[in-house]
Amino acid sequence: MDKKAKNILFKTYWKSGWINKKDRYTSPDDLAYAKEKGVMFDPRTISHDACLAQIFDLLPKISTQLVGKAFLSSLSTRRLDWRSGLASYFIAKQLTPHPYTKVISGQSLDPHGNATHISHTCGICRDAKYGIIGDECYDNVDLNVLNFERIKWGGVRHGHLIYTLFDLEQLHAADIPEPTTEDIAIFQNMLTVIENSQPEDYPSALEKNLASVIKSTKDERQILIEILACINILKPTSYDRPTKGKHDWTFVTYWRGEDKYNKEALQLYFSNYMPQKTL
């Protein structure tokens, strides 16, 4: 990835925290440079149905081997954008062809109980695994903030239809190297940490334990865990479990240490790189 283009992208959105929307600015010259390097993009307007059609057009061009390779290659390089596509690929595989089907997703009420605002989503997307968020139309969507989140954390909008499309497009266009021995060793060490989890461990405990085997921030590890849960490597054996207070978990909420890792999912994505005893 071009360092100057990445720096332009990051300076647009982040300075010791999120830059307020009204204060975000990229000069025309910087924007042109970052766009030329494939790091920044023009806003996109696309309908739900066209978005879905483009996802289905992309899927046959992306294999489970590619998404597994990209994930592994991200571990030592900290190319977090490479690992994001693994979750988006899994989510895309849950989708079926369908038109936008409007249902209410939420509403605001005044003190008298009258609706002051009603929001909608696609009911068929919503009813897919994990509850995919599908808008009827995406109007001038800022793809640059999506790419910033991919690069900085590994993606934070998995399950949003427009992000699924964008993420898969970027994965398909990327030149992904073969994982190194270091990448594979890191992943094996991660699996060992998971396998050695205490039965009562919550996801937050796993996040802390992984700090010893992969160079990463807390936020990066949280997304890493979410990706592994999304693709069923961290698969709960029960969903009838309590949760602890407030949390931001989506896919891994009900995983506990006693669940260890799912060898069937591991084999699906990583069989080319893992020793047989791990599988």
Rank of each mutant, 00 (worst) to 15 (best):
D2F: 12
D2N: 15
D2I: 11
K3W: 11
A5M: 11
W14G: 00
W14S: 01
K15S: 08
K15L: 05
G17T: 10
G17F: 11
N20I: 03
K22L: 03
K22Q: 07
D23T: 00
R24N: 02
T26D: 03
P28K: 04
D29N: 11
L31P: 01
L31S: 12
Y33E: 06
K35M: 14
K35V: 07
K37W: 08
G38W: 13
V39P: 09
P43I: 08
S47C: 04
L52K: 08
D57W: 13
L59P: 06
A70S: 14
L72Q: 01
S74L: 00
L75F: 00
S76V: 00
T77R: 05
R78L: 04
W82K: 00
S84A: 15
S84M: 06
Y89F: 15
A92V: 07
K93D: 06
Q94N: 08
T96S: 14
T101R: 05
S105K: 09
S108C: 06
D110Y: 11
T121R: 12
C122Y: 05
G123P: 04
I124H: 05
R126S: 08
D127H: 05
D127W: 02
I132K: 01
G134E: 01
D135P: 00
D135C: 04
E136G: 12
C137F: 14
D139R: 12
D139S: 12
V141N: 09
D142I: 06
L143D: 11
L143M: 15
L143H: 10
N144Y: 10
N147K: 14
F148R: 05
V156Y: 13
R157M: 10
R157K: 15
H158E: 15
G159H: 10
H160R: 10
F166P: 10
D167H: 14
D167A: 14
E169T: 12
E169M: 15
L171G: 06
H172I: 04
D175G: 09
I176G: 13
E178I: 03
E182Q: 14
I184D: 09
Q188H: 04
M190E: 09
T192M: 10
V193S: 07
E195L: 08
N196Y: 06
S197A: 13
P199T: 04
D201S: 09
Y202P: 00
E207P: 00
K208H: 09
K208L: 11
K208N: 09
N209C: 09
L210A: 06
S212R: 11
S212Q: 12
V213M: 05
K215V: 03
K215G: 01
K215I: 02
K215N: 10
S216D: 08
S216H: 03
K218I: 07
E220P: 00
R221A: 03
I223E: 13
E226M: 09
E226A: 10
I231T: 13
I231Y: 10
I233V: 15
I233H: 02
I233N: 02
L234H: 09
T237H: 15
T237M: 11
S238I: 05
S238P: 04
P242A: 07
T243S: 11
K244T: 15
W249F: 15
T250E: 14
V252S: 15
T253C: 08
T253G: 05
W255S: 08
D259P: 07
Y261I: 06
N262A: 08
E264Q: 14
E264M: 08
E264D: 15
A265K: 07
A265L: 06
A265R: 06
Y273L: 01
Y273K: 00
M274H: 03
Q276V: 08
T278P: 00
T278H: 02
